[in-house]
Amino acid sequence: MRIQEFTKGIIKRNAVFSLALGLCPTLAVTIMVENALGMAFAVTFVLVLSNLIVSVIKGFVPPDVRIPCFIVVIASLVTVIEFIMRAYSPTLAEHLGIFLPLITVNCLILGRAEAFASRRPVADSILDSLGMSVGFGLALIMVSAIRELLGSGKIVIFGHEIVPTVLSSPAVAMTLAPGAFLTIGILLAIMRRFRVI
């Protein structure tokens, strides 16, 4: 068990900015910080549990059926979190919409199962998934904070105004798909320039 397995996923091997995995939800749900937090929570739940389960069952899963087995595990976990969200946080489930069930095909989750959890000890796998989740969550929050601030002029999280109206005529394009590509592209360029990742 090494602590680097946790820390590497946060900045150095950040899911979005370094590995470029899980870009689809990053582009789609980062309209508001609130959605980003919901998506980050759902992905953390699925990623940590799937890494744990995959690492536990890796010993007796034959190599030829390992991908179908991982997908069954991941899809089931996604369905569980979807049921729970629809029951206890319906507005969030509605905002995330189709991207909640689509966590199943988030490359980050299958990627970590295949590349890490299926060949490492359980403790390392949990640390890796936690680090990756934190990194993914931070990336979503960064992108969504920029987009919500520029696109809506203020940041509101679960009914609390975190940043009051700073722009009276916000750039609506930032809440649309082009805004997502622009934000991620510029952040990526800045990080590469200053060798953060």
Partner: peptide
Amino acid sequence: LKPALVLMVICMVFSAILVVVH
């Protein structure tokens, strides 16, 4: 037959979990 059986067992276990959560 082993790969098919393992996949089947995993599917059954997770179906059961989903039934309970649903």
